[in-house]
């Protein structure tokens, strides 16, 4: 994943958490991400900018709707907001893979579902940039991110409930997924009180 990462940090720019709420930054960053993934995988893509814009606006509304006022919840909301972004990307699907390279590893998620792979990479990269800038924290990536079975489950489950994309992004990022109420933000305190831990599995959602 690291060789396909997005360079979203620049000391002269506003922080990523602010920049990502501007459409021009979002568009440019997504196009950069697509170009990087195309370069490293050999997959060709086309981007529908109208769908990308519609997705951005939907994401921003969803982001504002559940934004917590409590400063203690900011760290948890970074992951949730990235998940919301993945959900809107999947719903609006602005990307189309138009060609695969002559030879590729079919067990690599980047070829199993090229569009989904770009969406996940983009959302994880933004999440990582915010965590590093605002919380001086490195993002931990889980082994599921490169496991084809997880990707198969991911792709199947979101057909019935696109909000599960939020839980799957948590899974890929090594966090505790909320499989039952994925679309509802729960602060760290609430999740601790509910006793949620990483015992849930993706098999339980299939």
């Amino acid at each position: 994943m690291s060789d396909r990462s997005l360079q979203v940090q620049d000391a002269d720019r506003p922080p990523v958490r602010k920049a990502v709420q501007r459409l021009r930054w979002f568009h440019k960053s997504f196009h950069d991400q697509v170009a990087q993934c195309a370069h490293t995988t050999g997959v060709s893509f086309s981007v529908d900018d109208k769908k990308l814009t519609a997705g951005f606006i939907e994401w921003l509304r969803a982001f504002d709707a559940q934004k917590p006022h409590n400063a203690d919840s900011r760290r948890a909301y970074v992951g949730f907001a990235a998940g919301l972004m993945l959900r809107t990307m999947i719903r609006h699907n602005p990307l189309t893979a138009t060609g695969l390279p002559d030879s590729f590893d079919a067990a690599d998620p980047a070829y199993f579902w090229p569009e989904g792979y770009v969406y996940v990479t983009f959302c994880l990269n933004i999440r990582a940039a915010v965590l590093e800038q605002d919380f001086h924290e490195d993002q931990r990536l889980a082994p599921e991110l490169t496991d084809l079975r997880s990707w198969w489950s991911f792709r199947e489950n979101i057909k019935n409930d696109s909000s599960l994309a939020i839980a799957f992004l948590d899974l890929f990022a090594g966090e505790v997924p909320n499989w039952t109420m994925s679309a509802v933000f729960q602060s760290t305190q609430v999740r601790d009180a509910l006793g949620q831990n990483r015992t849930g599995s993706i098999e339980s959602t299939t």
Binding site: L23, T53, I57
Partner: peptide, 13 residues
């Protein structure tokens, strides 16, 4: 390009 972006935003709303 900026005008087209504004057009896409207006179209969604």
């Amino acid at each position: 390009a900026l005008l087209k972006l504004c057009h896409d935003v207006a179209a969604t709303q």
